[in-house]
Amino acid sequence: MASLPKPPFHRLSRETLSRLFVTLAIAAAGGTLFAWIGMPAGWLSGALVATAVAALGGLPVGIPSLVRQATFIVLGTSMGSAISPDTLRGITSWPVTMLVLLASVPVMMAAVVFYLVRIAGWDRRSAFFAAAPGALSAVLVMAETSGADTRRVVFGQSLRLFVLVALLPAALGGLGHQPAGTLPITEVVPDLVSLLASLGVGIAGALIAERARFPGGAMVGAMLASGLVHGAGLLSGRLPDAFLIVGFVILGANTGSRFAGTRMETLRRFLVDALAALAIATAISVGFAVLGAFLAEEPLVKVLVAYVPGALEAMTIMAFVLGIDPAFVAAHHLARFVGLSLAIPLVVRLFFGPAVVPSENVDPDPGEAKD
């Protein structure tokens, strides 16, 4: 009897696994190289750079959602293990830096929008969404239904994240910050029972946060749950180095693969504008970070990582790997995420009105071919 045809998902699953294997091989090679030459956060930044180059070269790269979510849980669990009673006592200084951060957001966005519209010639909608510092998922959802050119928005946001992850460790070194190494120095969990318990707590926290649609759900939920039990002294120790290295490589690969499908023509057209916007946003972040650090009597490097216009998950992990309080950084990026998610719809309604055409029909230049 003839064999039955294989279901469609078999072929798709095989292609997905093949792409995952290629992506991880490229990312691991880049991470190994950067770690070997002693780059700060080498496993993360090296994987990101290598994957981005491969994506721009047309190789099939990408990280499936399930793998990405599992990685966020592992990293969030280990980041939560860095929380201690001393960390909790330091929370008393956070309201000051929070207020300064929230004051910086409208200033930053106004300056970037002014440049993109008046100098670079972008339309106002696209410039507005591209200027949002973080909250990428919420920004993209709103941009797609507001008549913005989503190509510009995605490129500007992705390039900003790429540059920050790739260059921030070296920049902080120039400010005098010396991380302990490429991995945190907190002691590893003492036994298998503690390891399984830590993972179980992280998974439970991630599931609850995802169910509640909490921003950065998988990672932030795992970190909060892990931080709760570690801060209370119920568990001690972070996950083994192998878990962290794999997590950093996958995170870097996921960020780098955002450039898949980007044509070199598009890259050249948007690159200068996006880099200039990043320079403006970063300069304003530094200025407000200096003010926040002075008022709260916190280290400048710590406040700066909490203020830079990057993604919640990536910047929290960057703080963790560089030996900076991840709870402090996560709290500030989360506050900005929530603030942007609430404020952007109101601003769009007040200043832009209803979209004339759907986002997918917007072409930044009628003389250019669509990508």
Rank of each mutant, 00 (worst) to 15 (best):
A281Y: 09
P95E: 01
G217E: 12
V49F: 12
T97C: 02
V338A: 11
L312I: 12
V356N: 08
Q69P: 00
N361Y: 14
L199F: 13
G134E: 06
A222N: 09
F9E: 15
L17Y: 09
R211A: 11
G256E: 05
I245L: 02
S3N: 12
A25R: 00
V112Q: 05
A327D: 00
T316I: 00
D371R: 13
A132S: 12
K370S: 12
V338Y: 06
L340Y: 06
P64W: 05
I284L: 15
F72S: 10
H10E: 13
V113T: 07
A225S: 08
A138I: 02
A296G: 09
G202K: 08
G237L: 10
L340G: 05
A232F: 13
E360K: 09
V338M: 14
I63Q: 09
A218P: 15
A50E: 10
G181E: 10
L342D: 09
V305N: 09
A283R: 05
R152A: 08
T77S: 15
A111G: 08
P85W: 10
A25W: 01
V338K: 05
A171S: 04
V301E: 14
V74G: 03
L168V: 11
A209D: 06
S84H: 14
A103S: 12
F129G: 13
T87Y: 10
T150W: 03
V100Q: 02
G287D: 08
R124Q: 12
T97D: 02
G252N: 03
V112C: 09
G339K: 03
M108D: 01
L224F: 12
V49T: 07
T92P: 00
D123M: 11
A41G: 07
P299C: 11
V105A: 01
G42Q: 05
H177R: 01
V61Q: 03
V357T: 10
G176C: 03
E298L: 15
P60G: 13
I185F: 00
T266H: 07
E210R: 15
G80M: 04
W36C: 00
G261L: 10
A212T: 04
P364N: 09
S104G: 11
T255N: 13
A260N: 10
E210V: 03
